[in-house]
Write a protein that binds this DNA or RNA. Structure first.
Lengths: 204, 204
DNA sequence: TGAACAAGACGAGACGGTCCGTCTCGCATA
DNA sequence: TATGCGAGACGGACCGTCTCGTCTTGTTCA
């Protein structure tokens, strides 16, 4: 053992301790702006570096692909709200309708539309990003939703042996698919119908 | 009216009657091969033209984007089976389980995996392709599925006033989402559980 | 009827661009 | 002294457009 034992890969890995927070923030900010302006497909690393006033190498040093940068850029926005809590009035049907109507509204908002779509396309094509997406974004939100369903189970509004993961998919996947493939318009009425149908499957 | 009336756009539109079927087939074949070999993101028009023994202009003359070529390349495969008919043994639960298990198997097949994923990412990002996708691929298949559900309605196994479009989404969107985002493994047992839950919502 | 002609799609590839990812430069920060 | 940094040069891959000369097809006229 001639050299230091604890050294994973010193020739490739940069030292995170010396990383410039100023540059990191400028890159993520420029990325968000450019995705909104030109859309994800026409977004380029060159343009991000130029807009952020940063060398290209600084981007390649810390991210492994354009998709990873975009992912971090929008993840940073959503991660602030970690304490996700859903409404719980005691009426599971009313609460779910409110949450799904809010989701419909969010998908319809042109400000969110472009970035979310870009993020989803990237996640669909990159298994590693997909894993990060699940861990850092989907998992906490899903846990909050399942907690609300558990509350409904305790209140006897949902079968005690219901598979909550499947329940979540039944609630959100149709919404997500309509939006992603633009197969049909997303309306509040649709959200209501969806909740009513899924609850019929989940009730005792 | 000095010139011929029936002339939509002679300076830009080529004449489909003079199109080379040989070149068209070679392009679609080369596209299918290359998508399988290098994946969709690394697929280039130049490579397609070279592999097909065709001038680049011949591709740009008939397709408006790389995505459109890929779309046609794989659409041509699926369109042969126009007379889509689903099994109808009289037992809607058994029939749906069989169909959904088949879908799960198809998604798991590595031969289909890459192209279908490429196609879906392209469709998600291009509204015009999405419209074509719905018309030429989704619509006929969905109609066959709805016909099977109508048969179940007549047999009294499904509520007469059920929204069949929503029913289809409840059945397939969760499957589709699991596969697209790789959020959980797709198994035959999952297909069965999905059918059982959805039918609970649809029964009279 | 058949030779001459015109139109247009074709294979090939040159062309100016954009962007890629890698690689030096000094600089400055620790 | 080491290392991240901004800047940008560099070769290469593709882009989408364009110009060639060729080949096919339909029309005209001897």
């Amino acid at each position: 053992m001639p050299t230091t034992p604890q050294r994973p890969d010193p020739r490739t890995r940069p030292n995170p301790g010396r990383r410039s927070e100023r540059s990191r923030a400028a890159i993520l900010r420029a990325t968000r702006e450019l995705v909104s302006e030109v859309g994800y497909p026409r977004l380029s690393i060159e343009a991000i570096a130029a807009r952020a006033g940063v060398g290209k190498q600084t981007i390649y040093r810390w991210w492994r692909s354009k998709g990873a940068v975009v992912f971090d850029a929008f993840l940073a926005l959503s991660e602030g709200a970690d304490g996700v809590v859903l409404p719980d009035t005691g009426d599971i049907e009313a609460d779910l309708k409110e949450v799904l109507r809010a989701t419909v509204a969010e998908f319809a908002d042109p400000v969110f539309e472009a970035p979310i779509r870009a993020l989803n396309m990237e996640v669909a094509g990159d298994p590693e990003l997909a894993a990060q997406y699940r861990e850092r974004l989907a998992a906490p939100v899903d846990e909050a939703k399942k907690e609300r369903l558990r509350s409904a189970q305790r209140a006897g509004q949902i079968r005690a042996d219901a598979d909550l993961d499947l329940a979540l998919e039944l609630l959100y996947a149709p919404l997500y698919q309509r939006w992603l493939l633009r197969s049909a318009p997303l309306t509040p009425e649709y959200a209501d119908a969806l909740v009513e149908h899924v609850l019929r499957a989940l009730r005792p």
